[in-house]
């Protein structure tokens, strides 16, 4: 088990889970999102490679209505 921060909320994940796995868990794998891990943007091509570690801070953003 590992604990990460996902959009400011504490979330438990299995150790060695990738970003892709996490997105799938939250039904976000088919959505248009962008991800920052510890302040650094993770390219979409790395979602399956990037393994999450304890205390990682993840930001998942998307487009919302705005002026």
């Amino acid at each position: 088990m590992a604990k990460i921060q996902l959009n400011g909320k504490k979330v438990d994940i299995n150790s060695k889970d990738t970003i892709y796995k996490l997105l799938k868990k939250f039904n976000l794998n088919n959505k248009k999102v962008a991800i920052e891990c510890n302040g650094i943007i993770v390219p979409q091509s790395n979602y399956k490679k990037k393994i999450l570690k304890n205390n990682d801070k993840l930001e998942v953003v998307h487009f919302i209505g705005g002026g």
Binding site: N7, G8, K9, L28, V61, H62
Partner: peptide
């Protein structure tokens, strides 16, 4: 459009 955190 604006960029914001998604409600996970």
């Amino acid at each position: 459009v604006a960029v914001r955190r998604i409600n996970v």
